[in-house]
Amino acid sequence: MTSTNHRNIKYYFEGEVAGLLIFLIAVVVAFSLASPNFLTATNLSSMAIQLPALGLLTLAMLIPILSGGLNLSITYTANMSGLALAWTLQALGGPEAGVEVFVLGCALALTVGALSGFVIGVVVAYTKAHPILVSLSMMILMRGIGEFLSRGKDITGFPKFVQEIGQGAIWGIPIPMLVFIVCAVAWHIILSRTRQGFGTYMLGSNIMATAYSGVATKRNLIVLYTLSGLMCAVAGIVMLSQFNSVRVGHGESFLLITVLACFLGAADPFGGFGRVLPVFLALVILQVLSSGLNILGANQHLSTALWGIFLLAVVILRWAWWRYSAKLKWKLEEPNNE
């Protein structure tokens, strides 16, 4: 009777990917016709530079959404991880710090991110408090610690190679974009090919039934939020290297955009369904819309409004498609019905 219960899951997602692809092509064509500056190497590479920060944070948001939750602390966890790296660099040489210091700093940053996710996971798993509430408190905590320790200032003064990583490219592809692609592939494998990912989908649909089937749901929740925290740390490191500075509050406006991107990529707001590929496509579409509008002279704020309208349009289209296909199915199966 309801759409979620009786759909064929596989076809649903294949249709979703096709729909997003068609839309992506349409948008690219439209912008190329509207402006000769759109399909240029400069614009493509600037898109590839802008996308990774939002993309990595979206990956960090995706797994909690699949589990039926949310992680509202992602941006500030990324900032805190960035701060951990920044201090390591500052404490061990500042601009003269070596690569080994950078590696150590990254390890520390990843630890900070993982720890933040781990705490959310433990509280969610053992108290069954709503993840929105738990991660919201973690967000307030992370923001607070970050602002306390950095006094709200920008932290700068890193070795040169850090910026080279953030703004460099391999085979013409910006390094942050490469990092993002690697992470997206890793996420895809974790979600589709590991017990952890499988369990996440199942508990996202019904945690009690999943626990009754012998899945260690508490551990799964802890691991999935830890993974989310780790991805935040990656985003934090990338943002540090791109901006060559860290400030608590960097990327704050990304928070709700990552949720938007997940929903656009057909992740089910109730949990249990959603894949990396459509979310990736949704991110690319958002980036194309924003860059294209930018070339046409509009600013980021108009893009933000359009992203919102775009999400509404997509969910309304999904609704219309569902109604239409239900009617169509009825007609096909009852050819003699008057």
């Binding site: 899951i9 596989k10 499988f198 989908y201 199942m202 649909s205 039934a209 009754y212 012998g214 249990g272």
Partner: peptide, 18 residues
């Protein structure tokens, strides 16, 4: 409905879960 099977998920995933 709420403990025996994960109703929203596919037949194969429910079977393979254990």
């Amino acid at each position: 409905l709420s403990l025996g099977l994960v109703q929203a998920q596919s037949i194969e995933n429910n079977l393979a879960l254990t």
